[in-house]
Write a protein that binds this DNA or RNA. Structure first.
Lengths: 146, 146
DNA sequence: CCGCAATTAATCGCGCACGACTATTTTGTA
DNA sequence: TACAAAATAGTCGTGCGCGATTAATTGCGG
């Protein structure tokens, strides 16, 4: 193992961390227009795909724990994006459902990926280039999430 | 532009965000042993390379603003890792210098990249695989940071 | 059917990130 | 030289992330 590769890991982490932050910064104004944050958008994405999920299921999808999700979803409930209710069959679970407002946001948010793709292309990042990272990121996530 | 690629962007952001989080989670216990956080480690890395930098310079290296760095570095000063002092030549600047303790941590932290590389390899992520992302991440950071 | 382990959310405290803003100091220029 | 513009840190408020812990509920082996 060369010291080159050692350095690479640590710098790789920094690059991953920085690229994620900067990319989310580009997203932020679009979400701000809808009155939501990036993380709230992630929760909505999960619910748009399948509604009425227990917090547990959202947790597994997003790799976020209840200590992050519970307050997050409470804020979303306060904004009338979702509703929280106990599961009758299993009183331990809290079921999260979309409100009309939460469902309606889907159409408005649909345009965001287009905008993002355009922004990236304008800044010289080709889709194909970005795409080369996807399988590695998936491998990394799969390897680190257990 | 296929809807496939549109989806890819948004999911690409999520993957980037998640992979960064999970990777830092693996780092965290090592840093905890030294009594520091990942972000504090980043500041130390910059200062280990060149000591006595104005906050401004650290900001540029880490892509973090003063609203993040000022409190962060104050905490590090409270822990006696660094010292803060005004620049005599330019009273606007705050110069951040390593203390003896901050300098000493370098040797202890030196082992961490080894551990990380081992952990990743154990989990089936080869250095070469990770390395393929580096140029793309650099391109992304360069493109998004202005 | 009892009790104990596992599951599921929730709570708490702290440290980032970051948008918006302010205060101070320097610089450049008319 | 005056003074507007730029540079530099700092402050404030909010929303994550997450380690640690707790409370409530369910499931399961004996």
């Amino acid at each position: 193992m060369s010291s080159e590769n050692l350095k690479l890991n640590r710098q790789g982490c920094f690059r991953l961390y920085t690229a994620a932050r900067l990319l989310i910064q580009v997203y932020r104004p679009y979400f701000a227009q809808l009155g939501i944050t990036y993380t709230q958008y992630l929760v909505l994405m999960v619910l748009w795909e399948q509604d009425a999920l227990p917090l547990n299921a959202i947790s597994q999808r997003l790799y976020l724990e209840s200590n992050t999700l519970t307050p997050l979803i409470k804020r979303m409930a306060a904004m009338k994006l979702v509703a929280r209710k106990r599961n009758k069959n299993d009183a331990r679970q809290t079921i999260v459902t979309l409100t009309e407002h939460g469902r309606a946001l889907r159409e408005q948010a649909a345009a965001i990926p287009d905008c993002m793709a355009t922004v990236l292309r304008q800044r010289g990042v080709a889709d194909e280039e970005f795409a080369t990272m996807i399988p590695v990121l998936d491998h990394l996530i799969e390897a680190l999430s257990k």
